[in-house]
Design a binder for these strands. Sequence first.
RNA 1: GCCCCCAUCGUCUAGAGGCCUAGGACGCCACCCUUUCAAGGUGGAGAUCAGGGGUUCGAAUCCCCUUGGGGGCACCA
Length: 489
Amino acid sequence: MRVRMAPSPTGPLHIGTARTSLFNYLASRHAGGTYVLRIEDTDVARSTAEFEHDIIDNLHWLGITWDEGPQVAGGDEVGAFGPYRQQDRMERYAREADRLLASGSAYRCWCTPEELDAVRRHQEQAKEPPRYNRRCLNLSDAERAAFETANRPSVIRFRVEPETIRFDDLVRGEVEFDNSLLGDFVLVRNDGSPLYHFVVVVDDEAMEITHVIRGEDHLSNTPKHIALIRALGYREPRFGHIPLILNPDRSKMSKRKSQTSITAYREEGYLPEAFVNFLAFLGWSPGTEEEIFTLDELTERFDLAKVHKGGAIFDRDRLDHLNGVYIRALSDEQLALRLRPWVPDAIADDDLLLVVPLIKERLVKLGDVPDLIGFVWEPDDVVAAWYGPDLLHPKKGGPDEARAALERALVVLTELDDADFAADLLEQRCREAADDAGMKAGDFFSPIRVAVTGRTVSPPLFASLELLGRDRSMARVEAALRKLPVAAG
RNA sequence: GCCCCCAUCGUCUAGAGGCCUAGGACGCCACCCUUUCAAGGUGGAGAUCAGGGGUUCGAAUCCCCUUGGGGGCACCA
């Protein structure tokens, strides 16, 4: 089994491309086959090195590897079926186009885009199917000679035979198309550059691809490819069309309506193993009720025949949940390492590690870390600016209750020396203080929480105090006290 | 418009004719735990399997029609 993934470097790695890459990876690895990466850069105007870099880099990030093709962006190509960039295969496309011309399966067309447009509009008005009218196929020798001597630019069109094309799709079963409904599509532009439908067929043959696994958006294009394959005398690969990933409105996932770039998810702090697990379940399931799988476990279970036929909406809530599951499964050391890019460099590794237990079960994405625990490394005045005096009020109470709690808390903090400044002792003393004040523990803790963390929601209070240390904790409580209006009388 | 594909809780899905008074997960609701928020635990609401016809002793599962949704019909990929 030889499969390929052929991303086009005309944009950053797209969710859909990533999922198709994953399914190709799983199918080939499961079967012990070969996975080829081919860069589909026939659209020179829109292809860039940056996008190629983004695609390869993010595939690596997901843990997807391949056997042939460029292994790193801009790097050397590996494999005996190269080149793996279409820009480097131009002679071959030209040669195959000539063969088609010579056999009569293709012909030159001198129609201008304007003429084609006019024809199309006319067909639409007449409610006819919009397809090429074969004007240039039926040119007289004299007309053709005139165009040629005038050196007028021409495209090469494939002459589509009116025939029924049938194939056995790997996920959909028997599918049938009537090619008489197809127009003669363009193989080569008038500047000599080949188009997608043509190169994809030439490349798959050259690379001896046996299984073409791609998105459902290519299902209707497949009869074109099969017709071309036959005209060129190639071997026909098996085709498998996997369902699309959808926007919430059930249309094909697009960047207008959803976040489609893998980089963006990566930067938000999704774990690649969670992301891969999530992607795999978009359109596939192992048929059991387990749902946490590593890439290797997915490889072991994967079966193209079990892929769904219907499209799947990208569900962020589910992704978030899965990411949390993976984060919680990490050891503190591993999580600290993963968190590093989202934490200021000034924070020492040891201090970062100390923070992890407080936030581990609260993290949805790695990028949430500054929001959850940033108060530890932000300066006191910055934290103080996060809240207004009203936030210091306990749920049942106003400034007086807030002041009472903060003043008593300050006494507790003052009485403990650095050596005793530990969460359990702090809690014990604060509970006693709350008792003395005749306040419920929760109401007593609330103003302290806001004073120290700047938020009403935070990691456990006393562990936070311990982490912050005596001096900074006291400073923050004092600052909070200054925010409160002076006591009446 | 034409062609093709698809159709189980809001979402991802289990389901290959009797195991289905349709299971799980996310989300939602309630309760428990609890210093807040999470995490965790328990329970709940939520799908007459899009609708209608067949086939069969028996259909979510097979067939047909309808409806709905999607994709494709470029000198984009």
